[in-house]
Design a protein around this nucleic acid. Sequence first.
RNA 1: UGGGGCGUAGACAAGCGGUAAGUCACCGGAUUUUGAUUCCGGCAAUCGGAGGUUCGAAUCCUCCCGCCCCAGCCA
Length: 658
Amino acid sequence: MGDSELLAHLLGLLAEGEITRENAELLAAAGGLRRALGEVTSPPKHARRPLQVGGEETSRTFWTRGGLVYENRPLGGAGRFRPAAGSEEGAGMGEETRTGEGGAAAPSNFIKEIVQADVAAGKHGGRVHTRFPPEPNGYLHIGHAKSICLNFGLAEELGGRCNLRMDDTNPVKEEQEYIDAIVEDVRWLGFSWGDRLFYASDYFGQLYDWAVQLIRAGKAYVDDLSAEEIRQYRGTLTEPGRESPYRDRTAEENLALFERMRAGEFPDGSRVLRAKIDMASGNLNLRDPVMYRILHAAHPRTGDAWCIYPMYDWAHGQSDSLEGITHSICTLEFEDHRPLYDWFVRELGIFAPRQIEFARLNLTYTVMSKRRLLQLVKEGPVAGWDDPRMPTLSGLRRRGYTPAAVRDFCTRIGVAKRDSTVDLALLEHCVRDDLNRTAPRRMAVLRPLKVVIENYPEGRTEELEAVNNPEDPGAGTRKVPFSRVLYIEQEDFREDAPPKYFRLTPGREVRLRYAYFVKCTGVVKDAEGRVAEVRCTYDPATLGGNAPDGRKVKATIHWVSAEHAVPAEVRLYDRLFRSENPGAGEDFLSDLNPGSLEVLGDCRLEPALAGALPGDRVQFERLGYFCCDADARPGAPVFNRTVTLKDQWSKIEGGRKG
RNA sequence: UGGGGCGUAGACAAGCGGUAAGUCACCGGAUUUUGAUUCCGGCAAUCGGAGGUUCGAAUCCUCCCGCCCCAGCCA
């Protein structure tokens, strides 16, 4: 192309409105004119070329894309580039696009992109259908929440459906209790599966028929090898396996044997049905995987109807197929199984879902494997699956976590294929964030220290007004009784105050929240010399918490009127493990945090808390968020600490000590 | 030594050939009747390493290094 042709082309683009006059001029002026215009003619995939504008000290760079010319320049945070001035695209691109309206849309991830691409390509008629398929052999944990949010969230967002399916193919491990707990937990998280609660066991009959089909096609056989022999024949990671001597039985023979397996004629472990694939495959899953094993065990749903049970690989893909699942999302360790998943579906000639794998969640300071969680429950360091220190959904619920906080956490951690361990601090941030907006504030003294206000009349009580939630004016106010004898937190008084300590100390004035300024005049000690009582005077002019003369105090502390206080038990929970990765050593139990639970039996709550119901969540001012436990009885509240408030002072003091 | 994956700040994570988003954590500073919240500011000369392709590479190619998963008749 000569220069004149290029010019003609440029003018053509200009005429068609593909580029602006200004851009055309820039192009013409640019040193790389020839090459750039060449690209504009038919922009190949990776062919954006910058044009250095000669002579300008700012050295502005431009590049072309789809016939448009863009200028490369920083946008101060919002976006990195914008179309060059005057470009038609200018109106539609730039900062607006990034910010979008409506605020926080669910972030995208590689799975969503795959699904969206499939929808755009018209696969399955643009249908999206996912499923969450737990095995009912334990309680759901926060890692499952990631999967639940992914599967149900994707369906919701893309106008599809998501099934809940119990992957109940191994009766020796599964229990109805777990099924019930799973249903409750998914519902609690806020997702619904309509009438689509399924069980892999629903498909036992179909699976059996399909197995017969494979046997007839010569693709499956009954193997008499023992478990040990099968293992030996399988070979190793680096050596190919050997074919079983029973591999070439006739279809008739296999059919007869398989029927007898089903009829219960053989003992457990004596025979299996195997798929006939490739004993030399580098992928061990393809070395004639077992499809059925003999298990004379009662199944929670099918009872004694079966004594042969399908293996995961034989059941899962076919269940997905039967339910019309378009995208079968699972964790990374199943990546190796995908070829087998695809093989079964292909050999059967049935609807083929697409399996996509993502990295499972790991969280610092806890363990996530069901094996270890079970061990914690069985061996007793924890009170049960719903112990508030457990990462189970039932544990988090009892701890006081909200479904919204868990969901928020799941969207913030993202979805990728990288093995990662998320900082517990992020989960805690999510609850604080939610509870800060929604939890009513109350005053509670966990470790009481008696305070007597010497100049306050005995027998007098005032009802002071306190705001329920400064973040939510709609939450209104409540009355809190004030009287001569109060309790404050032991840590809010120090006879010898260290530097930076703003709280009560002899001679210092502080504010009692929503009440008065009080000044410490002295202490009363017990026989051992410990401070048993703090003496104060109050300034009546500071009612409500402000001094008419404008004087300030450095601290505001919470309190409870002794006479009106409600005694309560409060359970302080902390991380279950002392190390970030308790799984590092094999003996994860040795990493248990001995201080993961502290029970305080002598707490005093403001009267508004007397009628707290299990599940009620509140903020104890200055202390943290707490949730009324199911152990609470009328007149005897029990609270669990969900999470502390962020605490600058503990850092200052901790730093001084360290 | 086989097969399958993954390597971007302390922790997650965008990025999909145009010159390193965001969040948490952390560190300031402002406001504050929660040492909370909120706000504002700081925090990666560089994407595991080395070569190569290209005007231009975290993005493409090659080799190397590291980590994870697989030898259940578990899921």
